[in-house]
């Protein structure tokens, strides 16, 4: 710690994104969201394991990734694919 996720108080992330669209921009995002809930509910891993796995993505890659790709990358690490 701190990893790339720990952003409270940081400067430089720019303006808030405009938001008028759907909550999920693509089907794979919604599927990733639901898959994570399902794996946690099934006891495959805890939310803390999920978050810790995401946090280990190196900062440069982490910030460059679309939000749900971080989730997807952590899911792949935790359950294989």
């Amino acid at each position: 710690m701190a990893y790339a996720n720990d952003v409270g108080g940081m400067h430089g992330f720019g303006d808030l994104p405009e938001e008028h669209g759907p909550l999920f921009e693509s089907v794979w995002e919604a599927q990733t969201f639901v898959l994570n809930q399902a794996f946690v509910a099934a006891g495959a891993y805890t939310l803390d394991e999920f978050r810790a796995t995401m946090e280990r993505i190196p900062p440069g890659e982490y910030y460059a990734m679309p939000y749900y790709e971080r989730w997807l990358t952590a899911l792949e690490t935790l359950v294989g694919s």
């Binding site: 794979w28 919604a30 599927q31 639901v34 399902a38 495959a44």
Partner: peptide, 27 residues
Amino acid sequence: LQARVNRLLDVAEARGVITRAGVDQRI
């Protein structure tokens, strides 16, 4: 990215975690 998620959907179904229909319902 969709192809990567498709592989995870297969893993989830094979392990009995959730079916594709189950994922669709939750969405």
